[in-house]
């Protein structure tokens, strides 16, 4: 419950605000996660591009192993998004896991949070297994090459390029606080009529 506020009363009493006539329902975390997965699958990197990248950058003799590893990532993704989900969703989740884990030393708090943000609660073992597979794949191709590949794929997103409105506008976080005033009269001894 927010504390009572002037603007709350004005919204209720006056006729100058939009009365709650929104037709659309409010979104919850679950709906938001689904929407985010959908959006992610449309952006930059795709599973096909990842498969292509590793196929092109590895010797033929290593390709069988990498195919197995790619399948293993898909399997982990399936455990995270649920077995009933479609192939597109699983691939999109696999892309997300690859992108999140490819340049990490371990599955830390940040990674766990990012994955949970995207999919909700997930089995930790699936992520650990995915992490070791991704690490092995990255080592076999070379970290810098993988990094360059991921960066190129995501380069088209405006907010990654830093073109954000207001970035150069000075903003102050100061807020109105209680004015510092003299101490209450019962503390400085001027209140003679005190009768607690």
């Amino acid at each position: 419950m927010p504390p009572p506020r002037l603007t709350g009363a004005l919204r209720s009493f006056s006729t100058v605000s939009r009365q709650d006539d929104f037709t659309q329902e409010e979104f919850d975390l679950k709906a938001k996660r689904l929407k985010r997965q959908e959006q992610f699958s449309r952006e930059g990197l795709t599973w096909q591009k990842i498969v292509q990248f590793f196929t092109q950058h590895l010797e033929k003799k290593e390709q069988q192993a990498v195919t197995q590893e790619l399948k293993s990532i898909l399997q982990c993704a399936k455990q995270i998004v649920g077995v009933d989900t479609g192939q597109d969703t699983i691939e999109s989740a696999a892309v997300f896991l690859f992108q999140t884990l490819h340049n990490k030393d371990q599955v830390g708090h940040e990674e766990t949070q990012a994955i949970r943000q995207m999919f909700g609660p997930f089995p930790g073992s699936a992520v650990e297994s995915c992490y070791s597979t991704v690490s092995h794949m990255v080592t076999s191709v070379g970290e810098s090459q993988v990094e360059a590949f991921v960066r190129t794929q995501n380069g088209s997103r405006a907010w990654d390029r830093g073109a954000i409105f207001g970035r150069n506008i000075a903003f102050s976080f100061d807020g109105y606080t209680l004015d510092s005033l003299d101490p209450p009269p019962w503390l400085d001894g001027t209140d003679e009529g005190l009768d607690f």
Binding site: S14, S17, I169, F171, S172
Partner: peptide, 23 residues
């Protein structure tokens, strides 16, 4: 489209006004 209305403007002032009064 009610992008701004009077209560919103008052809220903006009390939330952001202390350090961003000129803007």
């Amino acid at each position: 489209n009610f992008l701004f209305d009077i209560p919103k403007i008052l809220d903006l002032c009390v939330l952001f006004g202390k350090g961003n009064s000129q803007l």
